[in-house]
Structure formats: structure tokens, C-alpha cells
Design a protein around this nucleic acid. Structure first.
Ligand code: MN
Ligand code: MN
Ligand code: MN
Ligand code: MN
Lengths: 215, 215
DNA sequence: AATTAAATTTAGACAAAGCTAAAAATTATA
DNA sequence: TATAATTTTTAGCTTTGTCTAAATTTAATT
């Protein structure tokens, strides 16, 4: 399997996890910053290899084989992110791009040994679940901070947007995985929030609140 | 720089370290298990990028820029081999192929942090030197066991052949880096050796002896 | 020095993965 | 429902890295 094929599978997998319905050519093209015509070419190839169910003009979905392959790539990506943060002391906003490369290293033995070396983590540095060697995922209940109401208290357990910019913003506000967050006020006009993080009180926009997962 | 370009540079670098003279197209083709015509194409491209000095029909050598690039790839290869052996508990005969993939990961920060994490090793699991971040190499004096004479004693500090087969043979004979080796007898007929490794006495062929480095 | 052999390069082809522009199918709208 | 807009596919071209077969250059041998 080529890097490119792996990247398409991963993208389809991620798009599937939000929409459930078949994925459109354009959706893939947009997410991968490529052209629809290139996507069509690749879908034919992946279909030929029984990794996706593809019907012309009707969108695409992963086969069982394709889904497992995608999960294994996600597993590698997230385990390498753990390694970078926990062993090499990278910050959580620096690891994604490097993991994008490392996820394509081919060696089952390597990834399983890495998994053990890291103590078989179930979540990556952004709170996303890590599939095990069989593709099984432990799903954790979590809600967006934006869905919370006044006086509710929760723990930050993940982020929806994992861009470096957003993560750096959270660092600045001292919001990290494990931080306790209390809703002091919810402004009805713009749905912004007044929250308490640790000892500090801050105001965050609704856009920020809808990218933080709370439990 | 593409994977392929990096592999050519590395190959030229390794061939240079044994012969010193300009490297022939055929020598590169043989080592890379590719065709001479493919090599010619690539040499033109590398020359265009000032990574090699290439004169048609006259062979090729690395420029300073090319040599530094090659050393950085070797640095990554050997540091990853250390990681695999020391942290993930791979044996020395399993790591080369995985390192062939890992050496192409692009991130200076990653490799320097990995270097620190490993305690800045100067040698890889096969006794080969690891260039530092500036490309400097600490050369260690070493001689082939085959050059040794009766009654001499030395320590195994490296291997010339790093194939899995040879390394497994050494494992079987309980020869490892750091093993003390004493020449008991050198057979004049076939230049084979009777040696003592630790408490055991064994006989090895000249071919074996000329792939073990001793200090 | 002439001829033969070996090494090297060139020419032309191919697969992978991308692109643009045009055609076709689907969906939305008047 | 007919037309317009959007989405998707096809056709044809490009780059990278490879190959085979033919041509050229260099080296070796009579
Ligand atoms: Mn990531
Ligand atoms: Mn992540
Ligand atoms: Mn190696
Ligand atoms: Mn090595």
C-alpha cells in the first residue's frame, strides 16, 4: 500500500466518523487539498483493491478490509504522537505533522513494541482514542463545552480542532487535558462563556467552546 | 529531497568510504539493485542540485553539500537503530530494514531530541559511528579479526557484514559487541581461526573472521 | 593501431499520482 | 418539467523514477 493510498483511506475514515452517510468525492478532495479528478482516480484504485465500496457518482464507503487498514494507520499516528510527547518531550501542538510521516512506517512488530513501550495508552495527546492491534477502540463519552450550561463542571478530555494555532491558544489559557472547567456564565447574545479554569476566570468565544471536549 | 534521492546519496557515501576514488555508475546500480540507466538519470538530477560532482562516463563523487546530506541520513539511520535495540528491545539483526524506512522521516528537531533521549550515543548496535548534528564522526581504530595473529587478544567492536544471517550466526556463537576474543590458533592452510570467546573455544572460517572488527 | 569487449548514456516506454479543461450525470430551481 | 447550477467523471498532459533496447564512449586485447 502506498503512502497516498493510506492517506486516502485515513481521510475517508475520518469523514465517515462525522457524517455516517457515504462520502462524496468533493468532501475528500477538500479535506486532502487536492482536486476532485485526482480523488476519482484513487477511488477506482482503492475499489479495485476491495478497500472501498465505490459507485460512480454515488460516493464511497470503506469495506471491512479498508476500515481495518484505516484504523491501523490511525493507531500508528496516535501512538507516535504519544511517543513524541511522552518520551521526546514535544508539546501537543508540534506532533501532528511528524506523526503524519511516521504513520506510514511499515512494521507490525515495531508498532506493537512501541505500544508496549508506551504502556498501551488508550488515548493520544489530544484525547483521541488509540485503536488496539485488532482495531478495537474504547469510546469515551464526551460532550462539547459549548453544550454545557451555567454552573456545570467538567474535565477537559479532548479537543476537536487539533491545529497548532488552537492548541497554542489553549496553552496560553492554561487549558490542558485534565483541566477542570466550570461554567460561570453563558452569554445568551453571542453564546460566549465565562469559565473558571483552575483558579483563573476567563472568557471564551463559542467557537472556542465548541472545540473543547468535556466529561 | 525525495526518498530515492536520499537513497542514492547514501549509497554513494557508503561506496566512497571503501574505495576513495570516483564511484562508477555500475557500482551504484549493483548496490541498489537497479539498472545503470536509472542511475545515470538520477546522477544528472543530483548533479543539477549540486549534491554530486558528475562527469559523463567518468564516475561521480559527493560535493560537500551532498556529503553532509548523506551523513544526516546515516545519522538518522543509526540513531533509529539504537532506539529500536535499546528502547524497544529489538535484536541487532532486526533493525536495519525498519531503519531504512525511519531514516527518511524529515524533522531535525525529532532526530536531535531522539539523540538526546538515547544519551547521545556515538555508535549504533553494529559498532558503526553515528555522525553528530554537524556531521562530525568519531572514528574508532579497529582491525578485522582476520588480520590478527596467534595469541593476540581483542574486543569485538563492530561487524563489517550487517546482514541478518551473519548477525544471527554471531548470536549463535555468542559473539557480541564487547565480547573478548583470543586467537588460539591460525590455520595456515585455509586461514581459519581457533578462537576463545568468553569461556568457549570455537573454530571460525576466514570469511567470518574478515567480517568482525576487533580493537 | 585496429578490433573487440565492457561500461555508460540516450531514446523511448510505462506506472503512479497529480493537474486542467471538457464532458456527463446529478441536483436544485424557476 | 425544463433549465440552470453543481458535482463528478473522463481525457489528455506532466513529473518522478523506473525499465529495455540501441547507441556511444572508454577500456582491453590482439
Ligand atoms: Mn494528529
Ligand atoms: Mn492526535
Ligand atoms: Mn543499518
Ligand atoms: Mn547499523
Amino acid at each position: 500500500m502506498t503512502f497516498s493510498e493510506e492517506n486516502y483511506l485515513k481521510t475517508i475514515y475520518h469523514l465517515t466518523s462525522v457524517s455516517d452517510a457515504d462520502i462524496s468525492t468533493n468532501a475528500i478532495a477538500e479535506k486532502m487539498e487536492t482536486k476532485a479528478s485526482s480523488v476519482t482516480d484513487m477511488l477506482k484504485k482503492l475499489s479495485e483493491k476491495d478497500l472501498v465500496n465505490y459507485v460512480k457518482y454515488q460516493g464511497v464507503s470503506l469495506t471491512d478490509k479498508g476500515k481495518l487498514a484505516a484504523k491501523m494507520i490511525v493507531r500508528k499516528h496516535r501512538l507516535w504522537e504519544c511517543f513524541l510527547v511522552e518520551k521526546l518531550d514535544f508539546s501537543w501542538d508540534e506532533v501532528h505533522d511528524i506523526a503524519e510521516q511516521l504513520e506510514h512506517i511499515k512494521s507490525e512488530k515495531l508498532i506493537n513494541k512501541l505500544d508496549d513501550f508506551l504502556g498501551n495508552p488508550t488515548e493520544d495527546p489530544h484525547g483521541d482514542p488509540i485503536p488496539d492491534a485488532n482495531g478495537r477502540i474504547i469510546k469515551v463519552e464526551k460532550e462539547l463545552l459549548s453544550e454545557f450550561e451555567k454552573n456545570q463542571i467538567g474535565i477537559c478530555v479532548g479537543v476537536k480542532d487539533t491545529s497548532s494555532d488552537f492548541l497554542k491558544y489553549l496553552d496560553k489559557q492554561e487549558i490542558a487535558l485534565g483541566s477542570q472547567i466550570e461554567i460561570i456564565e453563558k452569554e445568551s447574545f453571542d453564546s460566549s462563556f465565562r469559565i473558571r479554569v483552575g483558579t483563573k476566570e476567563i472568557t471564551i468565544s463559542n467557537k472556542i467552546a465548541s472545540n473543547i471536549y468535556i466529561k
